[in-house]
Structure formats: C-alpha cells, structure tokens
Write a protein that binds this DNA or RNA. Structure first.
Lengths: 146, 146
DNA sequence: TTGCTCCTCACGTCACGTGAGGTGGC
DNA sequence: TTGCTCCTCACGTCACGTGAGGTGGC
C-alpha cells in the first residue's frame, strides 16, 4: 500500500556495509548484542533495516577503536539503550526536575566514552611522536650524506 | 667480576612491567615473537633483561593501538629486526651509497607505521567529534531549563 | 529452472586464561 | 624449612572462520 516501501537488507548486505561477515552478525545476535532480525521465522532469511546498519557500525567502531571485549561493549550499549528509554521519558514529560536528571545522566555517559577515546588518543600521540623523532634522525643523516 | 651486575628479571616482573601476564610472555616465546630467555635450561626459570622489557612494551603497544594480529605484528617486527641488522651494517661501512640505501629503507618503514597510526587517529577524531556534538546538544538543553 | 545467497549445525583457530601437579631460589 | 614464584602439560574460552549439507527467493 505504501509507495516507498523501505528496502529490507539481507545479512550479506548488512555485513558488507559494516565491513564484517554474516558469521559475525549471527554471532552478535547469538550473544544478544544485536536484537534478532524482525518478523523472522526460524530457518528463514534475516531481514535488516538501516537502524541495524547503524547499530553494527557503532559496535564495530567501539570494538576496534576502544579495544573493548564484547562483554564490556555490551554493558556500554545497555547503558545507551537505557539512555534511549530515558529519551522517550524525556519527551513525554514537562517536569524540569525529571528532564534535568535525564540530561545529567546523558552527560555522564558521554563523559565516560570521551574519556576512553582521549586516553587512546594520548597513547597514539606518544607513539606518533616517537616515530616522528626517529624519522627526523634518519633525515638528518641523509642530509649529512650530501 | 663486575661491580654493577645487571639485574636479571623474572617472568612475573617482566609481565608486570609490561601490563601482561606470564602466560602471555610464554605464549609469545612459543610462537616466536619473543626470543627465548637467554642461557636457559629446559624446566628452569626464564631470565630477562631491560631489552626484553622494551621489546614486549613495543609488542603490546602495536597490538593494542594498531589492532594488528600477532602474525601481522610478527612481520612488522621482522622488518624491524632487518632494520637493526642494517644499522649494524651501516656503522661498519663508510660507503655513502650503501648508507643512503639503508637510510631510505628506514624511512619507508617508519612511513608505514606512521600511516597506520594516523589512520587510527583520524577514526578516533571522528568518534570524538560525534561525542562532543552530542554533549553540546545535551548542554544546550540543560541551559534551556534555566 | 538455474545461481546465488541464505540457513543450521558443528568443528577449527587465534590469543590467551586457568587449574593440576610438581620443582626452584631468596 | 617455609612461601612464594616459577615450571610444564593440557583443557577452557572468547570471537569469530570454515566447511558440510540443505533450503529459499529474485
């Protein structure tokens, strides 16, 4: 009935769009990191949406960049789900006290993630500095040859 | 005979100094990432030096920050060993042609590592940007409550 | 109907963790 | 001598990879 039926994705497409594999997607479903594909009969194909693409991209990014275990990641994503729940609550109330509490929790959650990101950045900067230093030495020696 | 005998490290000390575990150290020896501890009789304790501390620190850093598999890491470290060999050669020659070749290979190797580091940095910066953006939104809403 | 992708077991692998039982050095 | 750390198997685990054999949709 709808003129613009949202295109459903198959597992291989989802995998390719997120630089993973079908096996990885199924595994994440198995351990509860990804909700099972909607409206699915056991044994039939899994269908995904754009929201799933975003979810998997987020998982992959946190996994690779922050080096968290999937369990640690799971906790972080649970907190994120709790935040989404709060966001719904936020929009269904006008009470400024409740709104403030929700926003403050969001602030805390973001601060945690930023802390992880920045500590990684510092480590990378140190490594970068050492490499640049080595390069400088090599370049100086090259110049001395002339 | 020496007044300042270099203190030999035990595996637990090496592990602690590198934020790893004895099992990890033994595993790296097993797969050839770490040379076996010097002068060791099978079944007796492994003794390590400061050079081993540096080696393991390097391994851990590349493993965690660049997300390489131990096989990929192995290749990178082999290239590094080859460089060390070249460095000896470098110091044993005066031929500016040979010296230049050695220095140019070093430059290439450093460039490879810097490329890996910088691509990671870009990814982290993007993640950081998104988190900062989210924080900005939350803060604005908090201010609006007043 | 033909291909391709998908499905579910289920065993393999990488990078270690974790006892089990025993020996070594300050 | 007592503790602690070390030793060597060897099995367990996490995060998937990789067939084996079979079914499903453009």
């Amino acid at each position: 009935v709808s003129a613009t039926k949202p295109r459903a994705l198959r597992i291989g497409e989802l995998a390719e769009m997120t630089s993973t594999t079908p096996r990885t997607i199924r595994y994440y479903e198995e351990i509860g990191l990804l909700p099972g594909a909607v409206d699915r009969v056991q044994g039939k194909h899994r269908n995904y949406t754009d929201a799933d693409v975003e979810r998997v991209k987020e998982i992959v990014r946190l996994r690779d960049l922050l080096g968290l275990s999937l369990e640690g990641l799971s906790k972080l994503l649970e907190a994120e789900a709790a935040r989404a729940e709060l966001r719904r609550e936020y929009h269904s109330t006008e009470d400024p006290g409740i709104r403030r509490t929700i926003l403050e929790q969001a602030t805390e959650h973001i601060a945690t993630q930023l802390g992880l990101v920045r500590s990684r950045q510092r480590e990378l900067e140190q490594l970068e500095g050492e490499l640049v230093e080595r390069r400088r030495t090599v370049r100086r020696r090259l110049a001395e040859l002339d």
